[in-house]
Simulated scan of single mutants.
Amino acid sequence: MKVLLFSEGKNLFKKSGVGKALEHQMKALELAGVNYTLDPDEDYDIAHINTIGVLSEKILINSKKKGKKVIVHTHTTYEDFRNSFLFSNYLAPFIKRRLIRMYSKADMLISPSEYTKNVVLSYGIDNKIEVVSNGVDTNKFNCNNIKKIFKQTFSINKPLILSVGLPFERKGIIDFYNLAKRLPQYDFVWLGAKLNIIPKKIKKILNHKLPNLKFPGFVSDEMLISAFCEAAVFLFPSYEENEGIVVLEALSSKTPLIIRNIPVYKNWLSHKENCLKSQTFEDFIENIDLIVNNKVDVKKMVENGRKIAEERDLKNIGIKLKNIYGEIYEEEIQ
């Protein structure tokens, strides 16, 4: 059994969650001993498609014509496409029609969370959907024996409030900026690739100088892990996620976590058990104070968070994917 892992526009998406998800799939399949290729011209038995572009649909159609089973990963939804790129809100209805067409043609769908599964089902799609986390490399995102170089490199002298992600309005970057403005006693750093296809109001934030706010852009894995390990708080104010790989990385690194209270985290992240959840802007301020000044059991939270990350370790994800492939492959050869 050989699997085609296909992701369109690798150069565009390599610094995004979809790019990270593909990396995770590759590592997970290697750990599980599953043979895979990234080249659609090679022979394969199952196509596992991660994107919804023109080439992705072509791979889907050609695979079906050849009698091969096709899995489409539902990384993209109408809800998470909005408030991201320039013109994303204008394009979102077209994207929704496109993803419905592609998802409906698949033999099986994989969603990264129960929340995303329910969103996809709400579109009227009735394909079988398996839920498999995007996973995290818990060996990599581990603060034991790592070089703590981030604060020194970026001249961080105050408690570090960290966030990671593409600088989209949907990710909560405006709130992050306003928190930095409100809380000069902390250093705020947002890591993530700076793109040309973002609205002017976001570019204005990225270019506006606050003494306690930095936007270093995309950094190496070594620098990223150091940032997690040196942060007082990982603050992720995103309004819409399908899972949030950076949340898993924070949990794995035992970085105290503050998130927005949105539906995707229901049933697996709990307030004061493994994170702090914020409903309002003032909640974020209060929750930062609770963690930085040890007014909550931070040790319990990060230990519980690490257990969640270990459940979603890539070795476990590889086993789940292998079982799904095996099930669909058996259908193919019968």
Rank of each mutant, 00 (worst) to 15 (best):
M1C: 10
V3Q: 03
K10A: 15
N11E: 13
K15R: 14
G17V: 02
K20V: 14
L22Y: 15
L22N: 13
E23M: 15
H24L: 09
A28C: 09
A28I: 09
G33A: 01
P40G: 00
D41M: 11
D41C: 10
D41Q: 14
Y44T: 02
Y44K: 02
D45W: 06
D45S: 08
A47I: 01
H48Q: 03
V54W: 12
V54N: 13
I59A: 00
G67Y: 13
G67E: 13
V70D: 00
I71K: 01
V72Y: 03
H75K: 03
E79V: 10
E79S: 12
D80T: 13
D80G: 05
S84T: 15
L86W: 12
Y90H: 10
R98F: 10
S104W: 12
S104A: 14
S104V: 11
D107L: 14
L109K: 06
I125S: 11
I129R: 04
I129Y: 04
E130L: 07
K140Y: 09
F141V: 12
N142Q: 09
C143G: 06
K148Q: 13
I149E: 14
F150D: 05
K151I: 12
Q152E: 15
T153A: 13
N157P: 14
G165R: 02
K171D: 12
G172W: 00
I174S: 09
D175Y: 11
F176P: 04
Y177D: 07
Y177V: 07
A180I: 02
K181Q: 01
L183P: 07
P184K: 03
D187R: 02
L191H: 00
L191F: 01
L191V: 04
L206P: 05
L210D: 03
K214F: 12
P216N: 13
G217K: 03
S220Y: 00
S220C: 03
E222K: 08
A232S: 13
F234M: 08
L235S: 03
F236R: 10
S238A: 05
E243T: 12
E249W: 06
E249H: 03
E249K: 03
P256S: 09
V264C: 08
W268D: 11
W268C: 14
S270I: 15
N274V: 06
N274C: 07
T280N: 12
D283S: 10
I288D: 05
N294H: 09
K295R: 15
K295Y: 11
K295S: 08
V296D: 00
M301L: 09
M301H: 06
V302F: 07
E303R: 08
I308Y: 01
D313G: 08
L314G: 07
N316D: 02
G318E: 07
G318T: 06
K322Y: 12
Y325P: 05
G326W: 05
G326Y: 08
E327D: 14
I328R: 02
